[in-house]
Nucleic acid binder design. Structure first.
Lengths: 349, 349
DNA sequence: GCGAAAAATAAAAGCGTTTACAAAACCAAA
DNA sequence: TTTGGTTTTGTAAACGCTTTTATTTTTCGC
């Protein structure tokens, strides 16, 4: 007890020796003549100190350039305010424009809410498991096709989980997705209104949820408009330019070749356009093509690509907002949040 | 003294009460019967403990799932191991493929070196200044056109600085750049070898260093090959598709119109291609176009774009490596690091 | 001007590490 | 066995904050 007191006293009087370090709460206390407890409260619970005192503290903090040390706060409060965004898609990184968009939204929101963010891919994260860094996150936002065992591992470690661009029901994990069904509808109804009757769907292989939703939307909507639903008109392909081009070539060599191709992402649409061009078909006269994502490439193509805009940034922001609710223990956190899409009409359809 | 001892004792015996918290060094100490100092050393200075002891510690750590708490370490060591990557370019974010590439490299390297990374734009960073988060970084990597006053502010706060994709001499700040001069040479000599004599340069407005270097390279190399250097052949433009298209249209309406366009980035090249197509010129027969960056869009275009590849990822990794040297106080840190470029020949030239 | 209640402030413990210093253990030579 | 040196381990303070508890000061009704 005595020793401890002595130390504190020492701290208060030897501040001069620490002149090259950042100012601490002790420096402010000394300058104001208050105790460190009061200074602390002035910052984190201002309503507990007299207004005049608070001002005195802030003034001193100003001249000393003091601001609370986040590390020490984390230590004392036992919380890191740190969350992670993991890209769970084979081979994808921040270079994938879609995830970069989500990431951008996440960064915005974390910035605003003063969360700390670590960004990684699922694979890198795994390989760094056990690293002290990993263990300090209070929540993870899982982007894309997260494996259930990964999710339950986080849950078992009491790490909050939010899924973005994926939806797994029954796990109690909040999900943020774009309006897959509505997006498909926007594109399809536009094509139908343009008079197309033979519409094919060129689908890259994505996570089960997304693929399934788009497939369901396509069949139901086509059917609802009295058009024939021929499963041959639905073609899976690798989500690469060449994979899509090859698949599209096959579609286009049918006798009753489609007059429009609904692609489930922009890269696939690029492949479709390439295939059409190689077959001497003009776009959009001979073949209409629509994309999905509305990535930056749309405006670079010739003709420019009509595409369904997905608001990745909003998805990212929402997932952080939901994470925040989770972390602050709120009840009734929405289990699925849907962000609307919007058709961007350009030259290709 | 007595109190303090008592507390530690308490800690060692009441561990059961903390069953829902992460295990601490005390838990490992108790399980092994060693002191926390020894456990700590087993982790951070293994050479100071007997091999047998070290094993005992690791075994216990294994069963308890213990790993050192990074926050507490940061607290004790007075270092955060945290660095920031700031994108210093008007309006640019992680969505800019070039910076996403650098960022990817930075993430890789920081992951490997167990650094903590915060990513932001210069603007966001400014607006969050004073936030405790900002203050904990030991170094910043500034990407793009960093303002000198920003740099010196960091320096004055003893925050290490590395510049990436920018070079400012005389400031004592290490810089990592791509081989701008060499990249221009690769593209130009290729075009010259293809027989082109009228080569124009379409230059987006970039940071002074980059623009200047490319300009200098262009003039010198053209001259070295005995071609006319007509400054009318060098055209500045906005680095957008439409800005470039407009500038290119002007270039192409000259009587002695160029037969090849060297664009200083891929987006500009896209604009050039659009302009050519609008004038009914075929690529590459009537007009050859080269890009610079070798971004993902190159392979989506028709014809595919010949472009100078810049290894952004490597630039990112290098800047972290250099930051590490800076932070560990090494002497003789290289002041400028140049990463080589490579011409990717495709259909457009 | 008094006492009680309310408000403001102070003291000290605690968060999980690292490390200087001290003590103990070990070992080889005397 | 003792001595002296080296290696290994232990003790306790320190890092900068928050917060519970305790104490002091202020406020206010009488």
């Amino acid at each position: 007890m005595l020793v401890s007191l002595d130390n504190k006293r020492k701290r208060l009087s030897f501040v001069g020796l620490r002149k090259y370090m950042n100012p601490t709460i002790y420096d402010v206390a000394r300058l104001t003549g208050l105790s460190i407890a009061t200074v602390s409260r002035a910052f984190s619970n201002p309503e507990l100190v007299r207004e005049k005192t608070r001002q005195r503290v802030f003034e001193a903090a100003g001249v000393l350039h003091y601001s609370p040390n986040a590390i020490a706060q984390a230590m004392a409060l036992q919380r890191t305010n740190k969350i992670a965004f993991l890209i769970c898609k084979e081979g994808a990184t921040i270079l994938d424009e879609f995830y970069a968009g989500i990431c951008n939204g996440i960064m915005r929101a974390t910035n605003r809410l003063d969360y700390e963010l670590v960004i990684s891919t699922a694979a890198d994260w795994k390989s760094a498991a056990g690293t002290s860094k990993n263990k300090q996150v209070e929540g993870v936002i899982l982007g894309g096709n997260a494996r259930p065992d990964m999710i339950s591992e986080f849950q078992s470690r009491k790490v909050s989980v939010v899924l973005v661009n994926n939806l797994i029901p029954g796990l109690g994990v909040p999900c943020v997705v774009s309006d897959e069904y509505g997006g498909v509808r926007q594109a399809l109804e536009y094509l139908i209104n343009q008079g197309h009757r033979n519409i094919a769907m060129l689908a890259g292989r994505f996570s089960p949820y997304i693929l399934n939703e788009r497939y369901r939307a396509f069949s139901e909507i086509v059917q609802a408009h009295g058009l024939p639903v021929d499963t041959c008109y639905i073609k899976l392909c690798d989500p690469t330019v060449e994979g899509a081009a090859e698949a599209c070539r096959e579609l286009l060599s049918r006798e009753d070749r489609p007059t429009a191709i609904f692609s489930t992402n922009d890269v696939v649409a690029v492949g479709a356009m390439k295939a059409a061009r190689r077959l001497g078909l003009r776009i959009p006269e001979d073949l209409a093509v629509t994309g999905l994502d509305d990535s930056s490439v749309c405006r670079m193509l010739e003709p420019e690509l009509t595409s369904v805009h997905i608001d990745c940034c909003e998805m990212g922001e929402l997932s952080v907002r939901i994470m925040k609710e989770l972390l602050s223990g709120e009840k009734g956190v929405p289990q699925v949040t849907v962000v609307p899409t919007e058709l961007q009409i350009r030259g290709s359809a």
